[in-house]
Amino acid sequence: MGKAALIAGLLILGYFQYRLWFADGGIPDVRRQQAEIADMTETNARLRARNEALQAEVDDLKSGVAAMEGRARTDLGMVRRDETFYLLVSR
């Protein structure tokens, strides 16, 4: 009886070791998921910073004409009637 119990115990131990190292949900799977979580956390932080910058820009544009004028000047190249526009070209 003792020999059969030892063999049964070793088989059960072997089964659980196999599941731990090779089956779905085992150690390699957990490590892969931890790496994915780290990548997603980094991506989320980058996107959160971008969203905050865009929200600040939206708030700035809503709050005043000066912000809209500055945006029009830089993005669209708009010039007032009483201004002279000079374009400097580097060689």
Rank of each mutant, 00 (worst) to 15 (best):
M1D: 14
M1Y: 12
M1N: 15
K3Y: 12
A4M: 14
A4K: 14
A4Q: 15
A4L: 15
A5C: 13
A5M: 14
L6I: 14
I7L: 15
I7D: 14
A8N: 13
A8Q: 14
G9W: 04
L10C: 06
I12L: 11
I12P: 00
L13G: 08
L13S: 07
G14E: 04
G14A: 12
Y15F: 10
Y15T: 13
Y15Q: 09
F16I: 08
Q17M: 15
Y18F: 12
Y18A: 08
L20Y: 07
W21E: 11
W21R: 11
F22D: 07
F22Y: 11
A23M: 04
A23E: 06
D24Y: 07
D24M: 03
D24P: 00
D24Q: 10
G25K: 00
G25E: 00
P28A: 00
D29C: 02
V30F: 14
V30C: 05
V30A: 13
R31P: 01
R31Q: 08
R31W: 00
R32A: 12
Q33V: 04
Q33R: 09
Q33N: 11
Q34E: 13
Q34P: 05
Q34M: 12
A35T: 06
E36L: 03
I37S: 05
M40W: 11
M40P: 05
T41C: 04
E42D: 03
T43R: 13
T43V: 12
N44H: 02
N44F: 00
N44W: 03
N44L: 00
L47G: 00
A49G: 02
A49V: 01
R50Y: 11
N51T: 07
E52L: 09
A53D: 03
A53G: 05
L54I: 12
D59H: 01
L61S: 09
L61T: 06
L61N: 03
K62Q: 02
G64T: 08
V65A: 03
V65Y: 03
A67D: 04
M68P: 05
G70I: 00
R73S: 00
R73K: 08
R73H: 01
T74A: 14
T74D: 15
T74R: 15
T74V: 15
V79E: 10
R80D: 13
D82Y: 07
D82V: 06
D82G: 09
D82R: 10
E83D: 04
T84M: 13
F85S: 13
Y86D: 04
L87N: 08
L87K: 11
L87H: 10
L88A: 13
V89Y: 05
V89C: 03
V89S: 09
R91K: 06
